[in-house]
Design a protein around this nucleic acid. Structure first.
Lengths: 222, 222
DNA sequence: TTGTACATCCGTGCCGGCACCCATGTGCGA
DNA sequence: TCGCACATGGGTGCCGGCACGGATGTACAA
């Protein structure tokens, strides 16, 4: 009978691409202290899995997923299981969602362009309740973070409201204000109002940037 | 001394995400008849790798990559190494690029949502010089393919010209006709002409759809 | 040589995006 | 109770996207 120092961490792996899940699972399962015990293909499945299994230690979440984005799923998971650590995986090295991820309850943020070693280290850091910032963007991120922390009061609060997200999605899908108004039974002017508020909140210039934003966070598919 | 029936196929693996490369490599290397002998992070690296190594049997290419898209890389590879089989990997189940991939010289087209078994089978099919169509979309794809083959003469020829692709990229990045005109030293009206031709050729409605198209094929990042 | 594809340019007109301005009602928390 | 955020609605005006119409020059292939 062997007596390991501690059992491996129980991990929930969430990504909409089965192939990526499989690959990441192989990477993580190769580590003696990490074990993928559940998989999910979207945010809703992830929440369901966390509801079933109270013994999860860590959730590794892709940012962009259909039905429920990784950010939304992170918020749900953090609410449902306050002890669960959350690591966000992202396609793009873009750091502007780092804070969005932190606000959503994530403790780490890892782009898919990193090496497998870095992912493993990020998992371990998250399990030790340390924030993991991927190497390379570290300086820029920390500088930006410190800037904001110094100037304002902590993280900027700018999540869009539910109604705004609804309209954000429709705008990003290419619908006109009139079409959206007809869909939601409101005036096209109200849609324009919402759209302007969204652009202002997210610091975007026009529909086109809004569309790219929606794609980045997985709200819509390209 | 063992004497295997034949040596494993030599595979070039191309994806801009190191994590995905690592995972896919683990999947393929687990098969006795498949071996990843080279990796590349974008199309340019892939072409360089194929130039160095004349003994490659198969290239597994992600569609969306920075600098040179998977489709462009496939064209280059097919020109450089006519014997090399090419398998396209794509993020989106969308089948409208299947023909684009075929024209670019690919013999298979696999979405990342498939299971690892399917990827392995697709590699083997490509190595046997058979076309692989992923399960599920098979019927719709074949039906569409047969429709086109029956009605017209083979595959529809509709690649955009180099100039058009240049403008396509700039339009998708959100530049106005005037900005693009200033950049390329041409009249904004000419830019609009090109844009209209592009929309018509690709069957798109407006800038927004054009942007999503450019993101899907990796011409720009969201 | 003649046609065809490509790139270049122009005018006209409509419609929608977007930036400003404004106001009202509702609900919630200080 | 008083503000504040949120959702709702309106007006005005500019500019750019996009659909039409037209044109020229050049290069290359049938």
């Amino acid at each position: 009978m062997t007596s390991p120092v501690r059992p491996p961490a129980r991990i929930l792996l969430v990504d909409d691409h089965a192939l990526v899940r499989r690959g990441v699972r192989l990477i993580l399962d190769a580590e003696p202290d990490l074990e993928v015990v559940a998989e999910a293909g979207d945010g809703a499945e992830a929440v369901a899995a966390a509801r079933r299994d109270a013994g999860l230690d860590l959730a590794v979440l892709d940012v962009a997923m259909p039905r429920m984005t990784g950010l939304q799923a992170a918020r749900e998971l953090a609410r449902l299981r306050p002890g669960l650590r959350i690591l966000m995986l992202t396609m793009y090295d873009n750091e502007e969602y780092f804070f969005e991820a932190l606000r959503a309850g994530a403790s780490g943020y890892v782009p898919k362009s990193v090496a497998d070693r870095d992912l493993v280290e990020a998992c371990r850091a998250a399990l030790r309740d340390e924030s993991f910032i991927y190497p390379g963007a570290e300086t820029a991120l920390i500088r930006s973070y410190l800037d904001r922390a110094r100037s304002g009061a902590g993280l900027p609060e700018r999540p869009v409201t539910e109604r705004e997200e609804e309209i954000l999605k429709l705008v990003a899908e290419g619908h006109t204000s009139k079409e959206i108004g007809d869909l939601l039974f409101i005036s096209p002017k109200t849609v324009e109002r919402h759209r302007a508020n969204i652009l202002q909140k997210l610091g975007l210039r026009d529909r086109l940037e809004l569309t790219r934003y929606a794609i980045r966070v997985g709200l819509i598919e390209p």
